[in-house]
Computed example of a mutant assay.
Amino acid sequence: MQPGTLTRPELTAADRCDRCGAAAKVRAVLPSGGELLFCGHHARAHADKLRELEVDVQSGS
């Protein structure tokens, strides 16, 4: 995953993981412009595939 400068808003407590509904810690912006939100666990579980797809990643604070 490569960190990048995004113009999307910071993640908040209201943002939830698309896989399990836990608090989102990572926003993965796909090359097509879509996005996926992941908790820390699912971000790590999918890290290899996200890197392969050259996804732009924003980590929450």
Rank of each mutant, 00 (worst) to 15 (best):
residue 42 H to V: 13
residue 23 A to C: 06
residue 21 G to W: 08
residue 28 A to I: 02
residue 52 E to I: 02
residue 20 C to V: 08
residue 46 H to V: 11
residue 51 R to I: 06
residue 22 A to Q: 10
residue 26 V to C: 04
residue 1 M to F: 08
residue 54 E to P: 00
residue 54 E to Q: 14
residue 5 T to S: 15
residue 57 V to F: 00
residue 5 T to N: 11
residue 47 A to F: 03
residue 14 A to I: 02
residue 30 L to W: 09
residue 22 A to Y: 06
residue 3 P to R: 13
residue 21 G to S: 10
residue 19 R to P: 00
residue 46 H to A: 12
residue 13 A to E: 15
residue 15 D to I: 06
residue 28 A to N: 02
residue 5 T to Q: 14
residue 1 M to E: 08
residue 50 L to G: 00
residue 19 R to Y: 06
residue 5 T to R: 14
residue 15 D to F: 03
residue 9 P to N: 09
residue 57 V to E: 08
residue 40 G to A: 15
residue 24 A to G: 03
residue 18 D to M: 06
residue 27 R to C: 04
residue 16 R to M: 09
residue 40 G to C: 07
residue 14 A to H: 08
residue 2 Q to N: 14
residue 24 A to S: 08
residue 33 G to F: 05
residue 1 M to K: 09
residue 41 H to D: 15
residue 7 T to P: 00
residue 12 T to N: 04
residue 26 V to A: 08
residue 57 V to Y: 00
residue 16 R to K: 14
residue 6 L to K: 06
residue 51 R to W: 07
residue 43 A to L: 02
residue 11 L to T: 09
residue 36 L to F: 09
residue 27 R to V: 04
residue 49 K to S: 13
residue 16 R to G: 01
residue 12 T to M: 01
residue 53 L to W: 10
residue 28 A to Q: 04
residue 17 C to M: 09
residue 41 H to P: 05
residue 12 T to Q: 04
residue 31 P to T: 07
residue 12 T to H: 07
residue 47 A to K: 03
residue 14 A to D: 13
residue 53 L to K: 05
residue 56 D to G: 04
residue 58 Q to N: 01
residue 9 P to H: 07
residue 24 A to K: 03
residue 23 A to Y: 04
residue 50 L to R: 00
residue 35 E to L: 10
residue 2 Q to R: 15
residue 39 C to W: 00
residue 39 C to E: 01
residue 44 R to M: 13
residue 54 E to W: 01
residue 52 E to T: 12
residue 18 D to P: 03
residue 9 P to D: 10
residue 49 K to D: 11
residue 60 G to W: 02
residue 56 D to A: 13
residue 42 H to R: 03
residue 49 K to M: 12
residue 11 L to C: 06
residue 31 P to R: 03
residue 10 E to H: 14
residue 48 D to T: 11
residue 2 Q to F: 12
residue 34 G to I: 06
residue 60 G to S: 09
residue 20 C to F: 08
residue 28 A to S: 11
residue 17 C to V: 09
residue 57 V to S: 04
